[in-house]
């Protein structure tokens, strides 16, 4: 399958610190790709590099089959980019913003569709952009981005700063208006529910490194939590293939493992626990397990939390 976006060892360093580290990304044409990561994981920097706004320290980028360094303007016109915060010219009215954007896409600008979107959101073309709410502004930015019928749509944290209702409306718009056959969408977010509703494939960036790149359903199925109970102090877990995290909570040892199978089961049983149990994780828990470092929740409550505070000890995070 052809890739709408392909990167090769994409790296960005700021003052010697790697914020994106050797990223090999391949997003198939026609897919909706959710790009996940915590704040500061490198999502925005990666997207800015893809859009030519930040120069990579190293590596190569291909968009719609063209090297980014030699991207023809015709191909650039088929790529829409919604930057974080939906930057638009506040002094323009919505109609002026549409005329301005439309001038750069002669022959591709779908004015009727743009006006339908405005009608749908009950927005007047005469409204000044600076007077719109964040949610309205996001919808206008989305309408402006899709009016030229782009083949690739890149959205950098499009729901950031929106309240629950505005976020819901925006995602519905994305589902109904944006997705069309053959169109590739890359959107970054740190809100799991957003990604789960829209993306058919996800990538998880942790400290600039792509730790996960697979179909969304596969990610949910593959990650499990294994809880081992011991009579006394748990032994250190020696590690196994697919281990994401391991930590001790009192007399329990908890593991997060990808593709738990016979090999991992043997490693668990070799420790001789009193009992052990394996449970699937939802997307949010799986994401947290992947992206959280050794730090655990603060023991704010008594009881179990105190026990956790005494015995919590992260071991062997993969």
């Amino acid at each position: 399958m052809t890739a709408a976006i392909a990167t090769e060892r994409l790296t960005k360093e700021y003052d010697g610190r790697r914020v994106v580290d050797g990223l090999d990304l391949r997003i198939p044409a026609g897919s909706v790709y959710g790009f996940l990561g915590r704040n500061g994981a490198g999502k925005s920097t990666t997207i800015k590099m893809l859009m030519g706004m930040v120069r990579p320290s190293f590596g190569r980028i291909e968009l719609l089959g063209h090297d980014l360094a030699a991207l023809p303007m015709e191909a650039k016109g088929r790529i829409a980019y919604l930057a974080e915060g939906h930057p638009l010219y506040g002094w323009m009215t919505i109609a002026e913003a549409a005329r301005f954007a439309g001038a750069f896409h002669p022959g591709r600008w779908d004015r009727a569709m743009f006006e339908r979107v405005l009608d749908h959101f009950e927005l007047s073309g005469r409204a000044k952009i600076r007077r719109l709410s964040n949610g309205q502004r996001a919808n206008v930015a989305l309408a402006l981005a899709i009016a030229p019928d782009p083949d690739l749509l890149v959205l950098d944290d499009p729901t950031l700063g929106l309240d629950t209702v505005a976020r819901h409306d925006f995602l519905l718009s994305m589902i109904h208006l944006v997705q069309r056959r053959g169109r590739t969408i890359l959107f970054s977010s740190h809100i799991l529910a957003d990604v789960e509703r829209v993306a058919d494939r996800i990538g998880v960036l942790v400290n600039g490194v792509l730790r996960v790149d697979c179909p969304t359903d596969r990610f949910k199925e593959a990650v499990s939590r294994v809880v081992l109970e011991f009579a006394g102090e748990p032994p250190a877990f020696p590690g196994c293939r697919g281990l994401v995290q391991a930590w001790q909570v009192g007399r329990r040892l908890e593991l997060v493992v990808v593709d738990f199978g016979p090999e991992q089961q043997a490693a668990v049983e070799a420790l001789g626990p009193k009992s052990w149990d394996v449970a699937g994780l939802n997307l949010e828990d799986a994401f947290v397990a992947y992206t959280r470092g050794p730090r655990r929740s603060l023991p704010l409550l008594g009881g179990v939390a105190d026990e956790a505070a005494e015995g919590s000890d992260d071991r062997g995070a993969a």
Partner: peptide
């Protein structure tokens, strides 16, 4: 400063 350069520079013009 306003962030609009991300919008401007993505327009299909060199």
């Amino acid at each position: 400063h306003q962030g609009t350069s991300l919008y401007l520079l993505h327009l299909p013009l060199p």
